[in-house]
Amino acid sequence: MFAMENYHRATDLNDAVRALAAHPEARVLAGGTDVLIRLREGDGAFAHLVDINGLDELRQIDMDTSGTIRIGALATCTRIIEHEIIRSHLPVIAASLATIGGPQIRNIATMGGNICNGAVSADSACALLILDTELVIQGPAGERTVPILGFHTGPGRTILRRDEILKYFLFRPGQYRGIGAAYCKYAMRSAMDIATIGCGAALRMEGDIITSLKLAFTVAAPTPVRCPRTEEAAAGRRLDEETLALLAGIVEDDVQPRTSWRAERDFRMHIIRTLVQRVTREAANQQGGN
């Protein structure tokens, strides 16, 4: 038994938003792989729930004529990973989600939940950041669209207001076409683990010259972050050992990993430096795919 005190099963999105507005303590329940765990731990903050798990309108995965891809907040990791559109156009999204938990978790966990819970270790965050994904959010007053960059505001915190619901993710063709992208999750186990460090890179090249690099990290700062200094330094350089070593030095200014019982700062920094080089290389190998 979960120690729930109130449960409302939303009939549609508007109903869900209304229910959130009506109950100041209510929180959204999607796949539940974070929420139900918190409830079991006795976290009273999740005792009042608005269940949006049944809202099929938030599950779509499609692409419009302009090439903009839309992924509903409630699409499960497994469905996204296996979807043809994602495989062909957003392989780095599929690759990132594939590192989450194990099969059973991916079968119910949603990408919406992964981002909305604000975890600094969220495995979809790097890929969303390097693709400059947009988020479409529904609130009582209507819809707003925000960039992923800036969505996270601190550990476990996002810009989402309490009565807002994430509807879908938008991926613009200008962001995902012509890039090579990769994600590496560095963790203690090869599955069912929380990232010690996550690193994503999206690369555009002309010949062997980097025209643009987008680089993101999780667990390297209080929120998932992009690396503006490293990205700037990379632009216009030849992709070679020398450049990679240079980037590995600069990245230290873009991140602020901290010491916890899980890992020490020095160690995390070493892994960050190593991953900048390995993931950028890997992104280059992925070039020319989509």
Binding site: G32, L36, D51, N53, I105, N107, I108
Partner: peptide, 18 residues
Amino acid sequence: TVLVDGVAVDSCLYLAVW
């Protein structure tokens, strides 16, 4: 683990009403 419409889920993290 049980199958829900053929899909493997952890039944401990799955509401009965679902």
